[in-house]
Design a protein around this nucleic acid. Structure first.
Lengths: 343, 343
DNA sequence: ATTGAAAATGAAAACATTTGCAATATTGTT
DNA sequence: AACAATATTGCAAATGTTTTCATTTTCAAT
């Protein structure tokens, strides 16, 4: 039972109550083997009685690690980030660290100031999403010699080690799939690519794969829809209203694909009989759609877990280590894709 | 351009380079009005040149706020939590704080140790999800006089101020809706209620509302499915296989409702003609389903934003303040609910 | 009982800041 | 030019730890 009242229960108060010196109390936490078992027992008892809680801030100014890792994401509430954050946080927790989380809403200037903030908090490492960041941010991290990890996308030429998937390859994979099915009248729907290297790389992959079979996506069929079922659905409804449907709609992520499927379903357009629809990401629930969504799996949980190990290695390892990891995307051919119908 | 090399750029290094005392440097950050404009300029220039970054850990041991708020959630990767975390983090950021995030996976013992960890980090406040917590956790927070907020559910009798919705009311709302449509052969699908007061309260609300019209959910139709489209879908497929369908399926959250809709869609069972389906939550995308999902809106973003203001008030306010807020749930009658068909 | 090595402990300095108080510099007034 | 009032700065103590080094204690071996 911890005693009530009494703020400032510090290591000195504990020492007094246990009739030992502060040094001994400190040691009993950090190097328990150096203090006699009976003394340790006595201290532990006092700690419990007084409700003492260690002060990491005070430890941190001794150059001891803060035990925190800064994670800066565009946003938390996109399925795919949420999944990754979850597994990253679980793994990091397991390794004794806690996450300091901030989101910048796809604004790279905010990312810079959040990075500064993380450094003020003396995090032990920083993880950023994607490859594209302002030079300021990169310089800052480099100059402070902060262990830094780029998460989510992989590129061998990135300024810091990456753990992630190859978004270009993911786009190419799905583009090729659609091309091989024989589609030539193809539409694409992607989120705005500004400040979002993931989306632009995917789109590039798609375009290049289609180009290999001489297929080009007409300007009018390059739909832009921010990440949301609602905007995707209405974009496709507009497309339907115009008439002259494509035989395939390649979506930049599964959420957009869901919206697309709802719109087509509503218009009683058969998938994949009349129109093939594909996503990227393989979010939870995509497989259970009716019909089941053809997409490219980007294993968010794996990335999160691997990234956690990687950054902890960067933090704890004395010598330079190579922690970069490419987690390859994988095509999932399911029910929403098929050969072009006789439109 | 910050100078390269040189770690330990501390306030003393800055002071030396600017030919003033460390106190003046400190003041120029914390009480700029107390230092002459020209001196401040000089210091700022040095700070930029040396790439100095303030050390919040060192400030914190002076009783100054750490600028962090501990947020402990069951999991990040459920749509509804993700949305809330996002708006909470945005709002908290706006107010000058950063989130220290941890997830316990619905394990309340882990919640306790995460809470301890937060206290070690000297967070300025702690936000927990839901009403139900172990006595240990509550005692710990109370004893440390930590500003604490209970998030997501609202209860006037909770041990700490709450900002959230009324889950019982949410359940009652949808139960009454289904009852009023005339349904009497009703199934329910809820996540396991252990350690999840949200789910159990919702279910209680549903049962009570149905009881008012003398309707009871038979044992065999009380489906339990963990939060996932996949499990919901297969649970409903099992139900269909058994034959003897209910005229309505009330789901504990929208994700379960999505799975249910997919299963029915696959079996070509008309919604709402043959079976009414309802959710709770009104997640993003629920409205865009075909047919559009009838559900109860629990405004996650509003809760997150309000909660952020509330906890910052708890932290910064001298006197005791009443920050509790009930954000009422709201029924959204849409396309998946209708009068019972002639089964 | 002594001795010496090993084990356990304590004193004090160090860490990067903030702040109360005292000292000094700058003003404006006469 | 002298004075007071005010503005600005520096000194030194304080914050809650850890750690080095020196001191004390313990205990087995003589």
């Amino acid at each position: 039972m911890a005693e009530k009242g009494r703020r400032n229960v510090d290591i000195i108060a504990v020492a007094k109550a246990a009739r030992v010196s502060p040094s001994t109390v400190s040691r009993s936490f950090n190097h328990p083997d150096l203090v006699k078992a009976t003394t340790r027992k006595k201290i532990d008892a006092v700690v419990r009685r007084l409700g003492y809680i260690r002060n990491r801030a005070a430890q941190t100014i001794h150059g001891i690690r803060s035990g925190t890792i800064g994670l800066i994401v565009p946003t938390v509430d996109q399925a795919i980030f949420a999944e990754m954050i979850q597994s990253f946080s679980e793994a990091v927790e397991e390794l004794g660290f806690t996450i300091l989380l901030a989101s910048h809403g796809f604004n790279l200037d905010r990312e810079y100031s959040l990075t500064r903030k993380m450094l003020e908090h003396r995090v032990d490492g920083v993880a950023l999403i994607g490859i594209a960041h302002t030079q300021d941010t990169l310089d800052l991290l480099a100059q402070q010699e902060m262990p830094t990890l780029l998460l989510w996308s992989f590129s061998p030429t990135a300024p810091f080690p990456c753990v992630g998937s190859d978004n270009y390859a993911a786009g190419a994979l799905i583009g090729r799939h659609v091309a091989e099915l024989g589609h030539r009248r193809v539409a694409a729907m992607f989120p705005p690519t500004e400040g979002n290297d993931r989306a632009s790389l995917r789109f590039a992959g798609v375009k290049d794969a289609l180009a290999e079979v001489g297929c080009r996506i007409p300007e009018a069929w390059q739909l832009v829809a921010p990440y949301s079922v609602a905007t995707a659905k209405s974009a496709v409804e507009a497309l339907i209203a115009e008439g002259g449907l494509p035989t395939a709609i390649i979506c930049g992520n599964d959420v957009l694909a869901w919206g697309t499927l709802h719109a087509l379903n509503r218009a009683r357009i058969d998938v994949p009989g009349q129109v093939t629809v594909t996503g990227i990401g393989d979010f939870k629930g995509s497989k259970e759609f009716e019909p089941s969504l053809s997409t490219v799996r980007i294993p968010a949980r794996t990335i999160g877990a691997r990234a956690a190990e990687a950054i902890v290695q960067l933090i704890t390892s004395e010598e330079a280590v190579d922690v970069a990891a490419l987690i390859p995307p994988e095509i999932m051919v399911r029910g929403t894709s098929g050969p072009p119908g006789k439109a």
